[in-house]
Design a protein around this nucleic acid. Structure first.
Length: 376
RNA sequence: GUGCGAUUAGUUCAGUUGGUAGAGCACCAGAUUGUGGUUCUGGUUGUCGUGGGUUCGAGCCCCACAUCGCACC
């Protein structure tokens, strides 16, 4: 895998780039739809490709390891073949899920033991078996196993947590370089920068992670409870520390405004459940602001869903119809909202790329953030 | 026709020894950031079936009527 920086914005740290993988190219900045268990919930791959225009999607090691399990994934020939997606895939290591989903977990020198949230069965993730698992899943880009430090952690905890993440990263890298991809195409891994909201820890984490970074590096442990301004500050701390020739992936972020602000601070890659999860619950993101489709005010608004939207659903259905579907609890509501939101997120980063190339990203971003954050 | 039971929020129901009413769901809003088709936080809603009586005071006690259900003729 290779990352090439193409254009830079004269007024900010924003840049465009190109990532080349065994499953095709990714133009950055990019948003990556989340397909945790091998499915971007409610959206056909055909629509993901042709309507949403997703360039890369995510899978999750924790979820896929538990279901369908490694035997099935191996027998299928990897996740791409299993789910029928021939563009790039990125997998998260599952570290975050162990901490957010598994009720019982324990950190040992070896790794992290946890109980499945599905059936309570006991498992252990170590940096070594996590590499092996992500080899079997076969994503083009895989994440190091880390501990996601809570946003409100004190510095003692953050320091201890960072030491663990650093140790796991060293072991992860050793195993990664001691093994080969299984399906005939290249895999690369991104180390993850932790350090909570402490600048000195972030810099230390970045310097350590950079020793292991190949094409790209991830920024984790943000948007996990800390104020948004602190997230931006951490990005500003990290921007000059990370060489410009590494792709930067801000994990789990965020709102459309978060994404534009992070692009301005040098971030290239994003993923977030917000367009799909919040979409399933009625929230629609548009260029004119955010709509809650459950609100009664849409009941008799027969205008098209989003006149400025790029998805076919924006013209095919009305606001009143989608409102009705949400109130009626129809699964179709989740499908339409998810497809709209993903198309909007991909349009958002596409417009960002165009403005970076045109050299006016900063002013465009400032004008756009207010509009897309407003409530309709 | 007779007997018994029921009638309280949109709905299903709670409501202690009489002191002018609550819950779940629904509805109306807000939250949600490396996804369990969620979860969390607030908020609105009542001629307590109708009419009369007892009482300082009735959703609660008494009478009549109405409607529904069940049983029996």
């Amino acid at each position: 895998m290779k990352f090439t920086k193409l254009h830079t914005d004269p007024q900010s740290a924003a840049r465009t780039g190109l990532i080349q993988t065994g499953h095709g190219e990714i133009h950055t900045p990019i948003f990556m739809p989340v397909g945790t268990v091998g499915s971007v919930k409610g959206v056909y791959h055909r629509d993901l490709r042709e309507d949403v225009r997703a360039q890369i999607i995510l899978g999750n090691t924790y979820h896929l390891y538990l279901r369908p399990g490694l035997d099935i994934l191996k027998a299928a020939g990897g996740l791409h073949k299993f789910e029928g997606w021939d563009r790039p895939i990125l997998t998260d290591s599952g570290g975050f899920q162990i901490f957010s989903l598994a009720q019982i977990r324990k950190i040992t020198p070896e790794g992290c033991t946890f109980h499945s949230h599905i059936d309570g069965s006991r498992h252990i993730f170590t940096p070594e078996n996590n590499v092996d698992t992500q080899r079997i899943i076969g994503a083009d880009i895989i994440m190091a196993l880390d501990e996601c430090c809570p946003g409100d952690a004190d510095i003692q905890y953050a320091r201890k947590s960072l030491n663990l993440t650093k140790n796991w990263l060293e072991r992860f890298s050793a195993r990664f370089h001691g093994t080969e991809p299984l399906y005939g195409y290249d895999q690369t891994f991104f180390p993850i920068i932790q350090g909570c909201i402490y600048p000195q820890l972030r810099v230390e984490a970045a310097e350590h992670a950079l020793e292991f970074a190949e094409a790209g590096i991830s920024i984790g442990g943000l948007a996990v409870g800390e104020p948004t301004e602190q997230m931006y500050e951490m990005l500003e701390v990290l921007e000059p520390v990370i060489p410009r020739d590494k792709a930067r992936y801000l994990m789990g972020v965020g709102t459309p405004a978060n994404i534009l602000e992070a692009i301005a601070r040098g971030v290239d890659m994003f993923d977030c459940v917000m367009p799909t999860r919040n979409g399933r619950n009625g929230m629609l993101f548009t260029w004119n602001g955010i709509m809650n489709m459950r609100n009664a005010k849409w009941a008799d608004d027969f205008s098209e869903l989003d006149p400025s939207g790029t998805s076919f659903v924006d013209k095919a259905y009305s606001k009143a119809y989608l409102h009705h579907l949400f109130i009626a609890g129809e699964m179709f509501s989740a499908m339409i909202a998810s497809e709209h939101n993903l198309a909007f997120y991909l349009d958002l980063v596409s417009q960002a790329r165009a403005h970076i190339e045109a050299g006016d990203f900063r002013s465009w971003k400032d004008a756009t953030v207010k509009k897309i954050s407003s409530r309709l």
